[in-house]
Design a protein around this nucleic acid. Structure first.
Lengths: 344, 344
DNA sequence: TTGTACGCGTTATCAA
DNA sequence: TTGATAACGCGTACAA
């Protein structure tokens, strides 16, 4: 009974209508469960629609309604275990509200980031969720997007005060807390392996470290703070640089901007023939899936990744469906996880 | 100069045309770089289009062309470290060819799987990439999809011989090889922690284990093969069941269908006060990011996840763009990774 | 080189 | 309760 159709084999309202000798509008009404359609004709329509394998064409619907029920998700590195959890949270929240997500990975490259966002806009996503790889200097790009009216919510790596909501964690105070933990354990010579400080988490976490050091009257030697990427390679190189210092000029503890950086640093320490925490203590930030498993289990800050994703998606969808939804910065609560790498 | 527009602030061809007093077709031609348009008018058009912030509406384009440059990706569990790598491979291949991906996570639930695929079809994706959670019994669902003409490529967890290509690894021979490794190390009482055997990887990997045992004339006690889920909980319960056997009726080595199952089993072993590999040796499959880090580093099979994703996306796009592309089963090559958990 | 008419699949609106 | 018409934004096919 199946005839070959031109349109990829997809049945249209018109075709269903033709079979029953009614108008497409009647079919449309029946299928969308509108009130004003006769019970019997409705039944007939639903039956034959099903029989013919009709599925509504959401592309056409979107063209009419200017609504795609689609959101774009832009993340820097899906291999970093924090992000799959976030994506899972976004996913579940979005699906519950009948949205689909376009996932794009930028490999921490801002040019790619701009390109994919332009592609998402062309596809007329209803809004975008962004964890940016970018430095503050190019905040103009996002200002333009926000000005254009496209709903945008940042998560994890945010630009604040430019008119978009931000869902993150208490980076500053958590970083302060974990640094204090090192101080309380007796360390005074504490270095910092920083990520790009133009990105919110880079800046905030570094700020927390500085605050803790200042508060306890501890000096920060300029050479103890090294800025590099957010990944293993970044941590490896940063620690390598630290290790070029003569032993007595070196810190005997370091805080890392995140766990991957801490793992990279641990590799560098091991390769230098040194031990964690005996020679150098180290703490991270994230609670990566590997944090408790490495040779010297990593003291770190647990981030509620799944909840960040859920909250970010929920906030974005609210913003999409009610443009008067207010802009806010949400800081979810982290938890200090003490393991062996800080000498506990 | 910006007037509020009705359509979410998106500029249309018509609006650009109106500003310059030309027809929409001329604007369309200029923007799509068609040959037949005067150089000067073209320049003017491009300038004002840019000034007005014109972006082509891909929704409208898709309606005309029946092509969305979008593919749906269906995975069972994004938290399992194998999948983010696969997604990364899919992502990069797809973006290179100008496709976007809809990512959906089914949490290993077949009802969810069907629901999201229906949603993807309604959005008129050009094709779908599926790693199924489903058992062979409901192969009919996929047969219908394939019959409908929607391009479909399976990866990792496949249904074979139903008309869709499948990108996986040499599950059978790799499982046989790792089981033989246990045998060569002197183990004779080897159990198997299986996943659902209706899924291709469940069946193939189990088959490899059986083949290795048979080949070496080793007996498989029925009670040594436990079927459960593909995750930590599944492995934990399966091993728990094995441990209820009296010690001398118990295997002293087990092969797990994948690494998460092996990790769960290790937890159960530890909780029973036993040691890996001294009391029970264990091997996995996947080379999860944690495999080398756990207390007793896991001997396992490395799967080229990124390449699986890349190849799957490439095959799907080829199938989309040339419907005569032939159906094929691709088996990428794995590598045995020997660590301590098998007593090496 | 440029413009007009029409259709993609759907729904809002108004008329019957 | 039902149907005809127009519109969403764009591109093909044809005419000017």
């Amino acid at each position: 009974m199946k005839k070959p159709k031109e349109n990829n084999g997809n049945v249209t309202l018109k075709e269903v209508a033709a079979v029953l000798g009614v108008s497409t509008m009647t079919v449309s009404r029946a299928i969308n469960d509108k009130p004003n359609v006769d019970a019997l004709t409705k039944k007939k329509i639903l039956d034959t629609a099903k029989k013919m394998g009709y599925t509504p064409n959401l592309v056409a619907k979107s063209l009419v309604s200017s609504k795609t029920y689609t959101i774009g998700v832009v993340i820097p590195e899906i291999s970093h275990s924090f992000f799959p959890e976030v994506v899972k949270g976004i996913q579940e929240e979005a699906n519950k509200k009948n949205y689909q997500i376009f996932l794009t990975n930028t490999s921490d490259d801002f040019e790619t980031e701009k390109k994919v966002i332009d592609a998402l806009r062309a596809k007329r996503v209803d809004g975008i969720l962004v964890s940016s790889s970018q430095t503050k200097e190019d905040v103009g790009y996002y200002q333009k997007i926000i000005a254009s009216g496209l709903p945008l919510v940042f998560f994890d790596r945010c630009f604040e005060n430019i008119g978009a909501s931000c869902i993150g964690v208490n980076d500053f105070s958590a970083s302060q807390q974990i640094t204090e933990h090192l101080i309380n354990r007796g360390y005074k010579r504490i270095g910092y392996l920083s990520g790009p400080r133009k990105v919110s988490i880079g800046k905030e976490r570094f700020g927390g470290y500085v605050a803790a050091m200042n508060q306890h009257g501890l000096e920060i030697d300029d050479r103890w703070v090294i800025e590099n990427g957010f990944n293993e390679a970044g941590g490896y190189h940063a620690m390598g640089k630290l290790l070029t210092l003569p032993e007595k000029a070196r810190p005997n503890a370091v805080a890392a901007v995140n766990d991957p950086v801490a793992f990279g640093a641990m590799d560098a320490i091991r390769e230098a023939g040194l031990k964690v925490p005996d020679d150098i203590a180290i703490v991270g930030f994230t609670n990566d899936i590997r944090a408790g498993l490495v040779a010297s289990p990593l003291t770190t800050v647990h981030q509620p990744a799944y909840e960040v994703g859920k909250k970010a998606a929920s906030k974005l969808i609210k913003t999409i469906e009610d443009r008067t939804e207010r802009v806010e910065n949400v800081q979810l609560i982290t938890k200090l996880i003490i393991r062996k790498s800080c000498g506990s």
